[in-house]
Design a protein around this nucleic acid. Structure first.
Lengths: 235, 235
DNA sequence: AAGGAAATTCAGACTCTTCTCAGGAAACTC
DNA sequence: GAGTTTCCTGAGAAGAGTCTGAATTTCCTT
């Protein structure tokens, strides 16, 4: 698909030696209107930076050959200040990660949820002024959700949500009125390698309803046999 | 990225022969809307002063060839009075440092925290009248923090903070309501080469809360699994 | 060199989140 | 309306994350 400058949010280069991960990220980004290129190792990444001229790089730190840190260093030496979202293994030691957030950069630990990845990318682009994207505040009816402060309000009332509840609501709010299948929700909100009981989703919908419905009619409607949607209940 | 005169705070030349340090400083400055140029030694620095015309120079004193003192001396001989923030090793002897702060200049010992560096730069620029930057007083709700005097007040009551407590509170106050990750806080508030136990952050949050909460509700909220934010506790 | 303050490390207690499970409720099908 | 399927929600276990007091180390002052 060819996207013109007006249609696309930004150009993102995805660098990961695991094809599965690169694919997951790449598809998620394309679906969110980003223009995407991929590279499977550090050298390819450096080439792509010159050719593709990305606005942001999603960069795995653990790669054979030139690793993510080295790629970042080479770019800095070329005084190329493209912001980077580093991907690290969960057990990467603290001292390796330290320093990664000094500039506009940030990092995420694998495995992550796709929604969280997209959210982080948008934060970085917004801060670096490379995106025309609006404020991080999502609203639907009397619901408001702020990605920076992680605050949620219904009809002006603050609502405390746990991390998973927040991600779930954010996904629903970024697809208002659309019916989302259980599989879609699990794929986007839970970590990409989640292999547990799919019924967690029901539990979390229940949690969310309990917290949100205190201030108005239930907005999460069940579409039996399919999934859930965020919308006004029928008359 | 091209920044127009209106967008940028000031032009800063960073002179350090260690690329890692120069990178850290450069990234931090760019992220804080300064326009940055770098030089790796004294001669390059002198050239850049002519070409780049900085409003301030961050100048490492320990460099092979022309060192920081000599660079400063040459500039004085050219009657160039651009203010300088010298960087010295912690064990540089007193008599060498003495005299460094006579003009509008100042110095910091390595390693420093990124927030402290930015704060010092702003102080120097403000004093030398080369910055349009506002007053150094940060306020949020009933909290007040004065960067020049290092005084902190809550609801008018003075609060004694140690150095680290002050830097932590300053970072939180310069990002009010936003959730800051542990990594971000450590990167900005602690010295750039801090490689110790990340739990020190929790200890300092605990200290700060104890001191601040004497005069009102707790303003530092924990966002479990993410980090901390400065904001009003919810209803 | 001693004393004191600040910074850091550490360990245990504690809290909160996540996930699973199971019984019952609700919705759909025939 | 009975049977079947799907969904909801309370309870609880396991685990991760957090807080705080205290011990230790480092640094600075006298």
């Amino acid at each position: 698909m060819i996207q013109t400058a007006e249609e696309t949010l930004a150009r993102v280069l995805v660098v990961d030696d695991e094809p599965n991960i690169a694919d997951v990220i790449s598809m998620a980004l394309k679906y969110n209107d980003f223009t995407v290129a991929t590279a499977a190792d550090g050298n390819e990444a450096l080439e792509q930076v010159s050719d593709f001229r990305p606005d942001l790089i999603v960069l795995d730190v653990m790669m054979p050959g030139l690793d993510g840190f080295q790629v970042a260093k080479r770019l800095a030496e070329r005084s190329n200040d493209v912001p980077i979202l580093f991907l690290t293994a969960r057990d990467t030691t603290d001292d390796k990660i330290r320093g990664l957030t000094i500039g506009g950069d940030d990092y995420m630990t694998k495995p992550f949820s796709v929604e969280e990845l997209i959210a982080r990318i948008k934060v970085i682009l917004r801060r670096s002024g490379r995106s025309r994207e609006e404020s991080p505040r999502l609203t639907y009816l009397d619901l408001e959700l702020d990605d920076d402060t992680r605050e949620v309000f219904r009809d002006g009332n603050p609502i405390e949500l746990t991390d998973t509840e927040f991600r779930l609501l954010r996904y629903l709010m970024s697809n208002p009125r659309r019916v989302l299948s259980r599989a879609q929700i699990l794929d986007h909100v839970w970590e990409y390698d989640f292999a547990g009981d799919a019924r967690v989703l029901e539990t979390y919908v229940s949690y969310l309803r309990r917290k949100l419905d205190k201030y108005g009619p239930s907005l999460i409607v069940t579409v039996r046999g399919v999934g859930y949607a965020l919308r006004e209940p029928k008359g």
